[in-house]
Amino acid sequence: MPDIELFVQSLANGVSVGAIYGLIALGFVLVYKSTEVVNFALGDLLMFSAFAGWSLSVALGWPIWLAVLAAIFLTSLLSGIINEAVVSRIIGQPQFAHILLTLGIAFTLRGLILLIWGADQRSLDSLAPDTLLEVAGITLRAERVQIILITLVLVIALQFFFRKTRFGLALQALGENQMAAYLMAIPVRRAISGIWMLSGAIAAIAGLMLAPLLLVDTNLWLVMVKGLIVAVMGSFHSVPGALGAGILVGVIEQLAGVYLDAEYRDLVVYASFFAILAVFPKGLFGGQSAKKV
């Protein structure tokens, strides 16, 4: 394969993987924006969606589109229940308590997934047909194109939702000041649960798109780490920031995998994370903001 083609090919792969990272980061960003909680259980919600999708489509034999929709719905519901049952109880406690609580939820969820499905590896089909597309001399798998398209549509829809719709604006107000939002008759508790469900649904979409690229097993939650890196790089606030940082990380990872040793792929990502944080402590897309005394 000529050099330039290899480069473009890995660039495209990087963009599609990065789009998934961006989506996971979005799952973090949405919850953080409105409640200042980082949901460390997101990786396990993602894993749950992949296992649920496998159970519905392979074990029960449902058509794949129905299984995917049902898995997204189930994950979203689970995320909402987690918020209602556990996380909403400690509103107002320091951030550290939230980190520990969501870590505890992550352990429990991972343990339950292990108990239900076991540690075997499984493979999940993708929604997209298994064909190759030829775009301007570069061959791409339909799966990868579908990932990029779905992510783009989702990000644009979310952006529209937050900027233009009543509920989206209410959620933004919630992110600014919960007390004031409550006084403006915004149903704070219900809105937060809604946000958690949305975040769960996005994690599920990411998981169901990622699972066909990898395998469905109990290490799938580790992709959460990449999502966290992306969320920090994208400054934890903006929706397009998460996508941009996601694509950056995806491309860095793929190029490092192709041009350096594949063994150093993750290390290069970690190193670039620290390099970027050293230069931009607020992330790449962070504006000016100060901390309260």
Binding site: L103, G104, L114
Partner: peptide, 25 residues
């Protein structure tokens, strides 16, 4: 059937952590 799996360990660790954060921070 589930005695030799790693699942229960994780559930117990998680439940302990959740319990402490909720009830005795």
């Amino acid at each position: 059937s589930i005695r030799y799996q790693p699942g229960p360990d994780l559930v117990i660790y998680g439940a302990v952590l959740i319990g402490f954060v909720l009830f005795e921070p």
